[in-house]
Amino acid sequence: MNDTPRQDHPWWGTVEFSEGSAKRWEIGPLTLWIRRLAQEWWIAFERDEKKHERIMAALEYIDPDWLGHASLERYLTRHAQPMLHITPTLADRPVVTRPVVPLHLCAGEEATVYVSLPAWIRLEAGLHKLMLKEIAIQRLSDTWFGPSTLEGELCYASTTHCRQDLREVPLYPYRTITPVLIQNRSKQTLVLERLSLPVHFLSIYGSPENRLWTSRVSLRWEHGTTVSMEIEAQAPAQAGKAQILCGPRYEPEKGGVIRAVASFFG
């Protein structure tokens, strides 16, 4: 099932730029061009949503027509240091994933499903990691998650197959895998039509096979519309000896904690 090409080198990490040089990345749908000048960085990108399996990192790039890139941006600094840090990160808003087929979790049961989400790229320059830009590798559609149009929050929308067998999850190089443990402690069947993942509380880990994982999320439903959520503060067991690549955008409450989330399931 997993026919994705093996990824020998990670696309993230630190890249050295000599002055005036430019490099190109192709990470899934995203093509990224970066150029370093004496006192500035040039960044341009475009997306082709049909391409998912591309993975080419830090290729030398010579393009006389930089100004032809519609998305070109210049970042001015006092002195552009040669190092550029490329870090995978997660979206800046929660992601609402909709199972392709609604899931029914029987009373008293629990299941672990794997949710795959596209990562973002964070670009930082120099020793002090001067923040340049964050780019979504795949632009997800906006959506609203809440009981009404008055209450709720803006999120990104995604669909998931909620696979239970990890071997069946397509491991695209730009997507992260989040193990989600769902526990139904009630006496009713839990119908899961939408699942809001608070990705801004999750960390990203890189496995030895250069795959991206996020912290494991546990959801427990006992009754009513309230679901308690717990985020593990370590790499999921399935990721093996994974190293943390990027911490959460916002720290969840202490100790990984249990947070009551109303209307967690749509």
Binding site: V96, R139, L140, S141, D142, T143, W144, F145, T149, G266
Partner: peptide, 11 residues
Amino acid sequence: ADKNPLSLEEP
């Protein structure tokens, strides 16, 4: 509407 990322999926 589904293809346009600015259009909300929900509502």
